[in-house]
Design a protein around this nucleic acid. Structure first.
Lengths: 254, 254
DNA sequence: CTTGAGGTTGACGCGACGTCAACGTGTAGC
DNA sequence: GCTACACGTTGACGTCGCGTCAACCTCAAG
């Protein structure tokens, strides 16, 4: 005697809702075994077993299409679950990064700094130089660099800023020590400056090969020409030293 | 001279898309500073700064309404981020549990067991006794127990099954050893049986106080009356022993 | 006959946009 | 002035898995 339960019966038996069962019918995941002349859905034991598997896989987090594949026999459980596991781990990574970012952001704010876009940019104010950057290397360059910067976590930003500050400090120290711009010491700093720029997508050559020669030279000139940049290298004298060292480096290596 | 950028300009400057800007306009998060007679949206610097904050908070994972609160001054950044952090941590918990569950499920499957609903149920087949359970204690009882079972992780299920098997084996051993049903040994087993049932929500009293006396006695009788249950206790003789021990226990303690 | 429990289909809502579609506008070269 | 072509507009659907009405029909019990 083939049993058939009403939709509500099945929902209770399986611990789900009738709405869900209707949905599964709509998307073709679980059809009723019989439909009464009044339109009522009735399910038999095979349907119940199928439903059990569906609910299990759903509980494990699989999406409806994926479950459909498994039940159709196109995919086996192990494969589907393995793929799902990968996705879950990616999600975990994402969440973990988010948490770290938010936590450091909160800490930064407690440290008294305002959570304003202006202050979140790198060593020299990012937005302040937007126009120069755009005029010289196009809008896309700025936008890319900007998007790149904003995509970093707070920790990453802090690290990057730290690196930039250290480099600036080293430049200033070198300039004051009186060594020549073509000295090994200065050239090593120029190399670090080059490597640092290499890490910035959006600059010509940035992100992979490193900045192009014209860009590198243009930047060196700008440090001297613009007092706001020069301030990062100990004023006009420091900036001049930096420019000279960078020029020597560019001629020799680019 | 108040600048005003076109929507595309702003999108590039801020590293987002014009669609997003239109969306922010639609939801009232960021209005253009000016709208041309042709309907074009134009933004000024204040709008750009506001956009920077919006994009920052979005990057941190906040939702649009939450950002709206912050920008309206109804909430401060720290508070909003703290609340968001809580939510993120909950998400992390959820994902971690999912990963653990899926991993153990995969391991179980590699161990040769089929990922079939039938085999996922406890010692005696869950579905097979659905009708009895329903007839005796109502449909809700079965549904609750079933939902409870499916909500457990694979490890939990395994543990639970193990416990059940161990208990069954101990009952059989006791029955064969010839001790009396009212002996301390048998009564200890009855106590374990009681505790075991206590862990099953959906049974009358299950989940907290433990099974009720009538339920406990009814169950004992069923073990003898139904060969399928009796099989779990070493056949009719074993089941009889179990029933007698349980009856003594019930009279003495429930 | 009334009532209440349970069944049906249909459609909106959620979140933050991506992605057409259909059509008007600004700018540059010929 | 014409032609391209990039860029602007509004409108609306799709995403994912149901929850949640709404409007209406059906069945069994008192």
């Amino acid at each position: 005697m083939p049993v058939d339960w009403s939709i509500q019966d099945v929902a209770r038996l399986a611990g789900t809702t009738s709405r869900t069962l209707r949905h599964y019918d709509d998307v073709g995941l679980l059809r009723p075994s019989r439909i009464g002349s009044n339109g009522y859905r009735y399910y038999d034991e095979r349907a119940l077993v199928r439903l059990q598997r569906i609910l299990m896989l759903r509980a494990l987090g699989l999406g409806i299409p994926a479950i459909g594949e498994v039940l159709a026999g196109n995919t086996d459980d192990a494969h589907a679950l393995a793929g799902h596991l990968d996705w879950l781990k990616q999600e975990k990574e994402r969440i973990d990064r988010q948490i770290a970012t938010v936590e450091t952001t909160i800490l930064t704010m407690e440290g008294g700094e305002q959570l304003m876009a202006e202050n979140m940019f790198d060593g020299f104010d990012h937005t302040q130089y937007r126009e120069e950057v755009e005029d010289r290397w196009g809008k896309d360059a700025y936008a890319k660099g900007d998007a790149w910067w904003r995509s970093m976590s707070a920790t990453e930003k802090e690290e990057w800023q730290q690196r930039q500050k250290q480099l600036g400090a080293d430049w200033i120290a070198a300039a004051k020590s009186g060594v020549a711009p073509d000295s090994a010491e200065a050239q090593e700093l120029a190399q670090r400056q080059f490597d640092w720029l290499k890490g910035i997508p959006g600059t010509p050559g940035g992100g992979s090969t490193g900045p192009t020669k014209p860009y590198f030279l243009g930047l060196a000139e700008m440090y001297v020409a613009d007092a706001r940049f020069a301030a990062n290298y100990g004023g006009i004298e420091g900036a001049t030293f930096v420019r000279d060292a960078m020029t020597v480096f560019a001629e020799a290596n680019l």
